[in-house]
């Protein structure tokens, strides 16, 4: 049986990048096509292509305009899309991510519980009950955008974003969950803290979690943090 081929939309972003859109919504199926095309481009690289940035439903292809043209890239991508089969993708890597929930580690846990008219324990239970899909990495180095949250955990962003969210913060916003790898401003609701180092510029690859991976959170006590810190 032939896999469904996404009908790509090509859009120029200037003269040195081409946006390939494989759909227009956030969802696992379209994102699976994105991952498939991303991996196909890794296996069949195109000379002159300098960067590929997979997103929820698109891939941005950055190229050297002195070596490549959008027309050539489009032909290459069309070819890859014809051959690609999302069913044959390698199994994604699953990360088990330890989290200390609440208190100073998760300053918004109580508020989120209040919002859903339940207890912090119930929020932790909901957040740890699902395998999340990593839709894309972005915003800051190594930041995984993950989804979907169960409906009973969907929470709006904070009204006033924080100017400095500490590294390791595990947070939610709307239907997404994410982990702040480095200190940055941020408007998501912080539920907890993970001692895992999501981004290390000296490591190869520098990001721990990659687009297409799966993430499952589990609760640890703050006393256990010590064993995670070398």
């Amino acid at each position: 049986m032939n896999p469904p081929h996404p009908n790509p939309q090509y859009r120029l972003m200037g003269d040195r990048s081409l946006l390939v859109e494989l759909g227009n919504e956030i969802g696992p199926e379209i994102n699976q096509h994105v991952r498939c095309l991303y991996l196909a481009l890794q296996t069949a690289p195109l000379e002159g292509l300098t960067d590929t940035m997979p997103g929820y439903r698109s891939i941005l292809l950055v190229f050297d305009p002195l070596k490549l043209t959008p027309t050539l890239i489009q032909a290459h991508v069309d070819g890859l899309l014809q051959e690609m089969d999302p069913a044959s993708l390698p199994e994604p890597e699953t990360h088990r991510v330890p989290v200390v929930y609440g208190d100073e580690y998760g300053p918004d846990l109580t508020m989120v519980a209040d919002y859903h008219q339940t207890t912090p324990e119930a929020i932790i239970q909901r957040h740890t009950a699902t395998h999340y899909r990593v839709y894309m990495i972005g915003f800051t180095p190594g930041f995984p955008y993950m989804g979907q949250l169960p409906q009973n955990l969907v929470t709006p962003r904070r009204d006033i974003p924080r100017t400095a969210v500490p590294p390791g913060s595990v947070a939610i916003a709307e239907e997404q969950t994410g982990i702040y790898p480095v200190q940055s401003p941020g408007g998501w609701q912080i539920l907890g803290f993970t001692p895992l180092r999501l981004f290390d510029p000296a490591r190869h690859p520098p990001a721990l979690i990659h687009m297409g991976d799966r993430v499952r959170f589990y609760a640890i006590q703050k006393q256990e943090l010590r064993q995670w810190r070398q």
């Binding site: 972003m13 040195r16 990048s17 946006l19 956030i26 940035m53 439903r57 891939i59 972005g138 955008y145």
Partner: peptide
């Protein structure tokens, strides 16, 4: 819009 990659100059 749904987040996507960007380049300098956008």
């Amino acid at each position: 819009i749904i987040s996507e990659g960007v380049v300098p100059g956008a």
